[in-house]
Design a binder for these strands. Structure first.
Lengths: 343, 343
DNA sequence: AACCAAAATGAGATCGATCTCATTCAGTAG
DNA sequence: CTACTGAATGAGATCGATCTCATTTTGGTT
């Protein structure tokens, strides 16, 4: 409707000159500049980014693929990315997978059709992912977030998941706990949950304790006490639980309390992520804090660097164990009257 | 690179035919169809949506403007919208305002340059918003979410905020509370907070109680006990608080507890929104539940209807008071030993 | 007044699809 | 075998900007 050509006509100049007014105003004589600007103003000219994008072969749009914005970890990362991206003149096209790996390929394909300049992804499992293989093959710039692939050539922004969970386990061990379990969502679909389990195992072994199999929940974000029990056949009464994310931890604490178990008196619980809400609650959530904003910002920064053709070299981002009321020293070391048992 | 023209050449047909293969395959003879598809496959052809969008003047992109995805209310809405949109072949371009009305105009302008087909917005204040005026003027399809403007011509998906808070206040009154306050974020910036305050006032007046001035917090999502105290100069000891959203309520409960006030024994707290997390915590959060997923879905549905030129007529969506442990019957009706006082 | 480099401007192709309208093709009837 | 009809296909304009390269202006020199 109100395209550049109309503006140019109204101002009595050519398309080219009108275009220059917006892209390289310094090349235009001041008087013509003002004439064109006036015409643009009058016609309520609004540059058409589609045309720009088509012509310049650059959209300044970043495609974002994440499991679920309802998980504060992703919401916080999303916000940080949006701010960082906007500051550099980029916008975000956002898609969610619902933790469903089978959707990843098609969703990414969709964004590639839109010609996003690059992608920020959190995939289910970075190790054997069709999507990543394809992106690699087509050399589309992309950055993983939260994923921690083995391949060092893949750019990924994350903490050292193994070490982080190792630290959390050590924390519990230092508090005197010996019967420690780990709760996670569906393992097959999460590279980071597996690494965290490794860390848990390593810490226990260092203390001569045999790690238990992971207690696998059906949901990535919702733990239930009955399911916990059913996974504990033949196990000793636990005194502490590590959760592979904060939402699991919070829902678990809630369900434990509902079933008459006190946290941390009967059982200590540690989460992973360090979402803000955890600090507001009672008991406050002890958790391994990931720097979510920094992760988001860094993801954008690294992606933009890659798009400029640089070879950014990123290390792991630092994690930190945030103490909280949900994890305390082992109580009644010689009786387990209140401990959890298999039914 | 791998444009339609290359495919057409490889298949030995014209651009037009090649294009038809993807848009109206029924018009193409089966043998040519397969030849073109084979060529496309071989060249790894990926349709360029920018070109399509430019030519057809339709992007199938919905612009989304929301305050902050870290608030679960918006995260849940966002997810619902993404799913609904994708099902109809639309994608989301997401922008955040950080509750800052002064950014709204520019952010929307940006999305209009991208030629989004329509907008879903949650603005600070729908009553006197430049953005809405502009969108109206340019007849860009848009839908408000959570906002509740006076103007009936503006499409808005929300609950009846006034009635919802009225119900919450009635709930407290029925529990015997008489000293009821309302906590909110910055009022000047929130049409819905004002309506909720109206509802609070109405309920109290019906019981012959003079409403108190709103207790205004600096943040939209974080309440503090000291700030609460400082706003209560000359007031009686409160026994119950209504919060204009769940995050305020949760942080307030946490801060109350930290300052030695028991919830609900010393003071009852009710939130607004009904975020899932509220149910997991202890005490579980009593809250006015908004149907967030339905709101998100509806927003997309209504917007698409508008884009088709229809005149969807939407009523308010239903709210419901979800009881919770954070709000209980009035304790010790004649002593206020534990009640909150101004210092 | 003539000349020249530098500064402004313009003409036209281009990005990759879609759409209209004209043209060709295949199959059938006479 | 010719004519006719509907199905398939093609030619070329178009969406709205950008970019290159050619051309015109401008302003300063001599």
């Amino acid at each position: 409707m109100t395209d550049l050509l109309s503006v140019a006509k109204k101002a009595g100049v050519s398309r080219a000159t009108a275009a220059r007014v917006f892209s390289q105003p310094e090349l235009v004589r001041k008087t013509t500049l003002q004439r064109v600007l006036a015409a643009a103003e009058e016609l309520a000219f609004r540059p058409n980014r589609l045309a720009q994008q088509l012509r310049t072969q650059a959209t300044r749009i970043i495609g974002v693929l994440l499991p679920d914005p309802r998980n504060p970890v992703f919401a916080e990362q999303l916000l940080a990315m949006e701010l960082a991206a906007r500051q550099q003149g980029y916008a975000l096209l956002v898609t969610t997978t619902g933790y469903d790996a089978s959707q990843e390929l098609q969703l990414v394909e969709e964004m590639l059709c839109q010609r996003v300049d690059g992608l920020v992804l959190t995939v289910a499992d970075a190790e054997n992912s069709e999507v990543l293989a394809k992106l690699q093959r087509e050399s589309v710039p992309y950055v993983l977030v939260y994923n921690q692939p083995t391949d060092p050539d893949v750019q990924a922004i994350s903490v050292d998941n193994r070490l982080a969970m190792y630290d959390a386990a050590q924390y519990l061990l230092a508090l005197g706990h010996r019967q420690i379990g780990m709760v996670a969502g569906p393992m097959a679909q999460s590279d980071r949950a597996r690494l965290r389990y490794d860390g848990y195992c390593a810490a226990l072994r260092e203390h001569g304790i045999t790690p238990r199999p992971v207690i696998e929940m059906a949901s990535h974000t919702r733990a239930s006490f009955p399911l916990l029990q059913s996974h504990m056949q033949g196990n000793e009464g636990l005194t502490a639980l590590l959760c592979s994310n904060d939402l699991l931890a919070l829902s678990l604490i809630s369900d434990l309390q509902r079933h008459g178990h006190a946290v941390p008196d009967d059982i200590s619980v540690i989460g992973f992520d360090g979402i803000e809400l955890g600090e507001l609650l009672f008991p406050s959530l002890c958790s391994v804090v990931q720097p979510r904003e920094a992760i988001g910002r860094e993801a954008v920064a690294v992606l933009l660097a890659m798009m400029r053709g640089e070879q950014p070299d990123i290390g792991k981002l630092p994690h930190r164990l945030r103490p909280g009321e949900s994890a305390g020293p082992l109580q009644r070391p010689d009786t387990d009257a209140h401990r959890i048992r298999t039914r």
